[in-house]
Design a protein around this nucleic acid. Structure first.
Lengths: 135, 135
DNA sequence: CAGCATCCGTCGCGATACTG
DNA sequence: CAGTATCGCGACGGATGCTG
């Protein structure tokens, strides 16, 4: 999900609301992060890679319902943002290993916290959704 | 971003990787949560509402660059998932107040943790991106 | 094995106009 | 004030086929 830089116009209320939340409205790092780990496969990739380095084929087998296209693209995006690193071994046949960078590692606690919350509360969400749709 | 339920097929590696991360692969609450708070405006709405209840117009003024359509839709989605509640006051002119539910409140710590991480690290991400694009 | 290239459908999101 | 309805674009993402 590509997004434009936030408008830098006057935003009196948000300035207060969001500064309380602890970030600068003009650059909004939250969106910057959310946009990328919010993709369909990104967070899953990070979680898988957080256990140990994986090769391309291993990742494909680990997440069977991802297409090759999306696997490549997701890995590229994560690499571009510095979450993971890519190591090519000039063997025959060639092999490529992906692993979390220190930056990627540093994200994991917050990500795991979100995972934990999701696990704990997704029954409540499902229930809320059902109630809402019934009405 | 609509997503199908995860495949329930055999996923030996992910089963291990992801169970370590602490969630069930067959339902994957992470995606369920990420898909919705990963939207362009959702997290921002939650952050704004976490400071205090807001009326529709206040939210629009708080986030000037959101379209009316997306504001309504985002609020509906968050309400549907039980994050926020909607209170109509039959005054003239009519007014509607939105506020976080206890469920929504319970999400905030994890969300704020992610925000904090984003604030701390988005310079590193920007740098990584620049380095990557240069090559 | 680890990819890149191409075609193509779906949907998130914005702009605009209208209503109780 | 607080919405709903309609239109259109572009990004996301799946399927298939080709390469070093």
């Amino acid at each position: 999900m590509k997004r434009e830089p936030l408008s830098k116009g006057e935003t009196p209320d948000i300035a207060e609301a969001v500064l309380n939340a602890g970030f600068d409205i003009s650059t909004c790092p939250v969106r910057d992060v959310m946009d990328h780990i919010g993709g369909k496969w990104s967070s899953l990739m990070l979680l898988v890679l957080s256990t140990k380095p994986h090769r391309f084929g291993e990742l494909k087998r680990a997440v069977p319902d991802i297409s090759q296209r999306m696997l490549t693209q997701t890995l590229r995006d994560l690499q571009r943002d510095g979450y993971i690193s890519r190591h090519v071994f000039a063997t025959v046949p060639p092999s490529v290993e992906y692993r979390l960078t220190p930056l990627g590692e540093s994200l994991m606690p917050a990500l795991r916290a979100l995972v934990a919350w999701a696990v704990d509360n997704h029954p409540r969400i499902a229930e809320a959704r059902q109630t809402f749709d019934a009405a």
